[in-house]
Simulated assay, not measured.
Amino acid sequence: MTHALQVLGHEPVMLTQVVAGLCIKTDGTYLDGTFGRGGHARAVLARLGPQGRLLVMDRDPEAIASAQREFAGDARVAVRHGNFADMADWPSALAGLDGVMLDLGVSSPQLDDAGRGFSFQGDGPLDMRMDPTRGLSVAQWLAQAGEMEISDVLWRHGEERMSRRIAKAIVEQRRERPLVTTRELADLVIRAIGRREPHKHPATRTFQALRIHINDELGSLQAGLAAAARCLRPGGRLAVISFHSLEDRIVKNFIRGEVARAPRRGLPLPPVAPAPLLAVGHAIQADAAEVARNPRARSAVLRIACKRAEAA
């Protein structure tokens, strides 16, 4: 582990595998679309020469402020506040990238800060927005969403089998007083469905589902993969770390070129264009030693892809 990472007390998930998968060129241009604490970005930057460039994006204003402070004196680094789904709107990215790195889901700083509302481990406002300057918080959405809509979100994004029971409890609760804190929601879920699974908090799936929904994480991922494929130069590499099956399925299917096509009544399906990316090896998971050091790596899946020359 590098000195910088030791100072921060944080180990990026599958750092060695990501760096190897990106095949970093010293004069290349690379984009980290999920800066977080910057572990992957620093490892890429350490391998770039004077002509190399690192582009940094994150939806979280706090992560962007951190990146701006850290890299203010490095002309090789450019920082942009925004969703990686919009990377193709950044002229520096659209000019051509040799690699794109995405570390999906919620970051450690977001989880550690009870004030962001991502975790039921501490009590805080029921927010969960990756960008607190935009959109509705979870508390605001739950105060106005219909019971069936809430149930559908919990089922689709959390695979929560008790989604209807939880949604009903939320609607009944808000008739008296809306939910406004993470502890209130976690306690409500426990009352609604009990403790079913050993070593797993009953609200885990509910919190995951609401976070994914409020941030449109799956929609952003689909748009971001398409944008990455557009911005990558032929031979450029894409590295994506997913933390649950919903994300990984989208990444796997995109790399395979399995994009859903709606049938048109009375007309044949349009021809399928060749997939712009080619999978590099198989899905990679952290080894036992890394999981022991960093429990967050337990559910991580890394996929590497390369842009085909004919897709340029």
Results as ranks from 00 to 15, higher is better:
Ala273Tyr: 03
Val100Lys: 03
Ala143His: 05
Val106Ser: 03
Phe243Gly: 08
Glu172Arg: 05
Arg195Thr: 15
Gly99Tyr: 06
Pro109Leu: 13
Ala95Glu: 11
Ile250Ser: 03
Val79Gln: 02
Ala114Val: 13
Ala288Lys: 00
Glu11Lys: 13
His282Lys: 10
Ala43Arg: 10
Val240Met: 06
Ser108Ala: 14
Gly99Cys: 03
Gln208His: 03
Ser151Ala: 14
Ala228Trp: 10
Gly21Cys: 03
Ala239His: 00
Gly124Glu: 09
Val44Pro: 01
Gly266His: 10
Pro132Asp: 07
Leu94Val: 00
Ser92Gly: 02
Arg205Phe: 06
Asp123Ala: 10
Asp98Arg: 02
Phe35Asp: 07
Arg42Ser: 09
Phe118Tyr: 09
Lys168Glu: 13
Asp89Arg: 02
Ala4Arg: 15
Pro132Leu: 09
Arg261Gly: 05
Ile284Arg: 01
Asp58His: 05
Asn253Arg: 15
Gly194Gln: 10
Ala309Val: 06
Leu111Met: 15
Ser119Tyr: 12
Thr133Asp: 09
Ser108Pro: 07
Ala292Ile: 02
Asp112Cys: 15
Glu149Leu: 05
Ala262Gly: 06
Pro202Met: 10
Ala67Glu: 08
Leu154Phe: 09
Asp103Ser: 11
Gln208Tyr: 10
His244Gln: 07
Ser92Lys: 01
Glu258His: 12
Pro132Trp: 11
Leu55Gly: 01
Met130Pro: 04
Arg129Leu: 11
Ile255Asp: 06
Gly236Trp: 00
Phe207Arg: 04
Gln110Trp: 05
Lys168Cys: 08
Ser245Leu: 05
Asp248Cys: 04
Leu302Val: 00
Arg264Lys: 15
Asp27Glu: 13
Trp141Val: 09
Pro198Lys: 15
Arg53Gly: 05
Ile255Tyr: 06
Glu62Asp: 14
Arg293Ile: 07
Ala143Phe: 08
